[in-house]
Amino acid sequence: HMTFVALYDYVASGETDLSFKKGERLQIVNNTEGDWALAHSLTTGRTGYIPSNYVAPSD
């Protein structure tokens, strides 16, 4: 899985969403939902949907 870094803070709007903080590292599990991606946080160990425009690929 590619690793991504959060560009902004995001507060989950539902139970299936994943909250994260700017700078948090995430792995995209499934990116077939258009503007949303299923992601796993390497920081918190949690998995949920995130807005895909809130993250960018990290080196």
Results as ranks from 00 to 15, higher is better:
residue 28 I to C: 06
residue 32 T to A: 12
residue 56 A to W: 10
residue 34 G to C: 09
residue 59 D to P: 14
residue 5 V to W: 05
residue 36 W to T: 05
residue 25 R to Y: 14
residue 37 A to Y: 15
residue 54 Y to I: 08
residue 57 P to D: 07
residue 25 R to D: 03
residue 41 S to E: 01
residue 36 W to A: 03
residue 57 P to M: 11
residue 8 Y to C: 14
residue 32 T to P: 12
residue 26 L to P: 00
residue 13 S to N: 10
residue 53 N to Q: 10
residue 55 V to S: 04
residue 52 S to R: 15
residue 42 L to W: 05
residue 39 A to Q: 00
residue 23 G to M: 02
residue 2 M to K: 13
residue 50 I to G: 00
residue 6 A to N: 01
residue 11 V to T: 12
residue 52 S to K: 15
residue 12 A to N: 04
residue 40 H to C: 14
residue 10 Y to K: 01
residue 7 L to A: 06
residue 33 E to Q: 11
residue 1 H to Q: 11
residue 55 V to W: 07
residue 34 G to I: 05
residue 58 S to Q: 13
residue 37 A to F: 15
residue 22 K to P: 02
residue 55 V to D: 04
residue 31 N to Y: 15
residue 28 I to S: 01
residue 7 L to I: 09
residue 26 L to C: 02
residue 7 L to E: 07
residue 6 A to E: 02
residue 51 P to V: 01
residue 15 E to K: 11
residue 37 A to M: 15
residue 50 I to H: 00
residue 27 Q to M: 14
residue 12 A to T: 04
residue 27 Q to G: 04
residue 34 G to K: 08
residue 20 F to E: 00
residue 7 L to N: 05
residue 33 E to I: 12
residue 34 G to Y: 06
residue 38 L to I: 07
residue 28 I to M: 08
residue 44 T to L: 03
residue 6 A to Q: 00
residue 22 K to Q: 07
residue 31 N to V: 13
residue 1 H to E: 13
residue 22 K to C: 06
residue 46 R to L: 12
residue 20 F to N: 00
residue 33 E to G: 14
residue 24 E to M: 01
residue 5 V to F: 07
residue 29 V to E: 08
residue 33 E to Y: 13
residue 33 E to S: 13
residue 45 G to R: 04
residue 35 D to T: 10
residue 40 H to M: 14
residue 45 G to C: 08
residue 41 S to N: 12
residue 2 M to Y: 12
residue 12 A to I: 03
residue 29 V to K: 08
residue 56 A to E: 10
residue 20 F to S: 00
residue 14 G to Q: 10
residue 57 P to E: 09
residue 22 K to L: 04
residue 40 H to W: 06
residue 26 L to Y: 00
residue 44 T to D: 04
residue 30 N to F: 14
residue 17 D to L: 09
residue 57 P to N: 08
residue 18 L to P: 06
residue 48 G to C: 04
residue 6 A to T: 08
residue 57 P to K: 10
residue 23 G to T: 01
residue 8 Y to G: 05
residue 4 F to V: 15
residue 55 V to K: 04
residue 1 H to S: 11
residue 10 Y to H: 05
residue 58 S to L: 15
residue 16 T to D: 14
residue 5 V to G: 01
residue 9 D to Y: 02
residue 4 F to D: 01
residue 29 V to H: 15
residue 27 Q to F: 13
residue 30 N to C: 15
residue 33 E to F: 14
residue 21 K to F: 08
residue 55 V to E: 04
residue 12 A to L: 03
residue 38 L to R: 04
residue 52 S to E: 04
residue 10 Y to Q: 01
residue 22 K to W: 02
residue 41 S to C: 02
residue 20 F to V: 09
residue 15 E to T: 11
residue 31 N to E: 11
residue 36 W to D: 02
residue 32 T to C: 15
residue 8 Y to Q: 09
residue 22 K to A: 11
residue 32 T to H: 11
residue 10 Y to W: 07
residue 56 A to V: 14
residue 49 Y to T: 06
residue 21 K to G: 05
residue 3 T to Q: 10
residue 43 T to D: 15
residue 46 R to G: 07
residue 32 T to S: 12
residue 46 R to M: 11
residue 38 L to M: 09
residue 1 H to R: 11
residue 46 R to C: 10
residue 1 H to W: 13
residue 49 Y to P: 02
residue 26 L to D: 00
residue 40 H to V: 15
residue 35 D to A: 11
residue 54 Y to G: 06
residue 45 G to A: 04
residue 4 F to M: 11
residue 10 Y to L: 03
residue 30 N to K: 12
residue 50 I to T: 00
residue 53 N to M: 10
residue 32 T to Q: 10
residue 46 R to I: 06
residue 2 M to G: 10
residue 17 D to Q: 15
residue 47 T to P: 00
residue 50 I to L: 03
residue 39 A to N: 00
residue 41 S to Y: 00
residue 42 L to G: 02
residue 48 G to A: 04
residue 10 Y to F: 07
residue 19 S to C: 05
residue 53 N to H: 12
residue 49 Y to L: 10
residue 30 N to W: 13
residue 5 V to R: 03
residue 39 A to I: 05
residue 1 H to T: 12
residue 58 S to P: 10
residue 27 Q to I: 15
residue 26 L to S: 00
residue 13 S to W: 09
residue 47 T to M: 10
residue 25 R to F: 14
residue 36 W to N: 03
residue 27 Q to R: 14
residue 53 N to V: 09
residue 56 A to M: 11
residue 36 W to F: 09
residue 34 G to H: 07
residue 16 T to C: 15
residue 43 T to M: 07
residue 45 G to S: 04
residue 5 V to P: 02
residue 29 V to D: 06
residue 16 T to I: 08
residue 25 R to Q: 10
residue 30 N to E: 12
residue 45 G to E: 03
residue 27 Q to V: 15
residue 15 E to G: 08
residue 28 I to A: 02
residue 5 V to H: 05
residue 41 S to F: 02
residue 19 S to P: 05
residue 19 S to N: 05
residue 56 A to L: 09
residue 16 T to Q: 14
residue 31 N to L: 14
residue 25 R to G: 03
residue 45 G to L: 05
residue 22 K to E: 05
residue 18 L to F: 09
residue 32 T to Y: 13
residue 25 R to V: 15
residue 30 N to T: 14
residue 13 S to C: 14
residue 57 P to T: 08
residue 42 L to H: 06
residue 50 I to P: 00
residue 27 Q to N: 07
residue 23 G to H: 03
residue 34 G to L: 07
residue 36 W to K: 07
residue 51 P to S: 02
residue 13 S to F: 10
residue 29 V to Y: 11
residue 33 E to D: 13
residue 25 R to E: 09
residue 43 T to L: 09
residue 33 E to A: 11
residue 17 D to V: 07
residue 9 D to I: 03
residue 37 A to N: 06
residue 15 E to W: 08
residue 28 I to Q: 01
residue 54 Y to V: 07
residue 5 V to Q: 04
residue 21 K to V: 09
residue 56 A to Y: 11
residue 11 V to K: 08
residue 13 S to E: 12
residue 28 I to V: 08
residue 2 M to A: 11
residue 53 N to P: 06
residue 42 L to P: 07
residue 42 L to R: 04
residue 46 R to V: 06
residue 45 G to K: 06
residue 48 G to D: 01
residue 59 D to R: 10
residue 48 G to K: 01
residue 12 A to Y: 02
residue 21 K to M: 09
residue 3 T to R: 06
residue 43 T to F: 05
residue 11 V to Y: 11
residue 23 G to I: 00
residue 36 W to Q: 05
residue 57 P to V: 10
residue 44 T to A: 02
residue 37 A to V: 15
residue 11 V to A: 09
residue 16 T to A: 12
residue 49 Y to I: 07
residue 55 V to N: 05
residue 21 K to Y: 07
residue 31 N to T: 12
residue 36 W to M: 08
residue 24 E to T: 01
residue 29 V to C: 15
residue 19 S to F: 05
residue 23 G to E: 03
residue 59 D to E: 13
residue 13 S to G: 09
residue 33 E to N: 14
residue 52 S to V: 15
residue 3 T to M: 11
residue 10 Y to M: 02
residue 25 R to C: 14
residue 51 P to Q: 03
residue 45 G to D: 05
residue 48 G to M: 02
residue 56 A to R: 10
residue 6 A to V: 12
residue 1 H to G: 14
